[in-house]
Structures are given as C-alpha cells and as structure tokens.
C-alpha cells in the first residue's frame, strides 16, 4: 500500500488548484481587455490613447518600495523551493549510503 503524506498532498493540491484558477481568471480578464481595446471605433481609440497617457504619467518610483519587497519575496520563495530539493537529496543520499557500504 502506497505511503501517503497528507501534508504534501494538501499542499500540492491547493497549489495546483490555486495556480490553475488564478491563471484562467487572469487570461479571461486579459482577453476581455484585448477584445475591448481592439475595437476600431473612435471612442475606443480615444480610450487606448488615454490609457497610454495614464501609463506614461504613472510615477513608477512611488511603488518602487512595494515592488522591491515583492521581488525579495519571490527570491525567498525560490530559495525555499530549492531547499526542499536539497533536503530530498540528503534523504536519498542517506537512504542509499548504508546499502552502498553493504555491497562493498
């Protein structure tokens, strides 16, 4: 009978469901904006230009602190992710170690 780790099962399940849900919602939203802004009428053209103007007038440095925190959190997340594989590697090495010594 396979050994089930419920913590990892829950963690991976939630991770996959949340990722797929967020991706689908984001793509739907992007598609909706694309369809709206791709129209050729005068008012949509005005709206396109207005959005561009608003984007150009955006002061990036106002949000620089928060964005830096986000980047650092992403880096921390990647490091922790890699640490998982390091621990799994240690476990494999420890599990393989005694067998190797026995064959000698």
């Amino acid at each position: 009978m396979p050994e089930v780790d419920f913590f990892h099962f829950f963690r991976k399940g939630v991770g996959w469901i949340a990722t797929v849900y967020a991706t689908v919602v984001m793509l739907q939203s992007l598609y909706g904006w694309w369809v709206y802004l791709a129209a050729g009428d005068r008012y949509t053209s005005l709206m396109r230009r207005y959005l561009l103007v608003q984007a150009v007038r955006l002061r990036f440095w106002r949000f620089a602190g928060d964005l830096a925190v986000c980047v650092l959190l992403c880096v921390a997340f990647l490091i922790i992710w890699r640490a998982h594989y390091t621990i799994y590697g240690i476990e494999t090495a420890l599990a393989d170690g005694p067998r190797t010594t026995q064959t000698k």
Binding site: F7, H8, R11, C70, L73, I80
Partner: peptide, 18 residues
C-alpha cells in the same frame, strides 16, 4: 504582496516539515 507572504510562509512551513 500578501499572496507572496502567504506563499513564502507556507513554503517555509513545508520546508520545516520536510
């Protein structure tokens, strides 16, 4: 940021558990 904090916290918990 809140989502990233939650992800990092759960990842750290998972690391500890592992």
């Amino acid at each position: 940021k809140i989502t990233l904090w939650a992800s990092v916290a759960v990842a750290a918990l998972s690391l500890l558990y592992s």
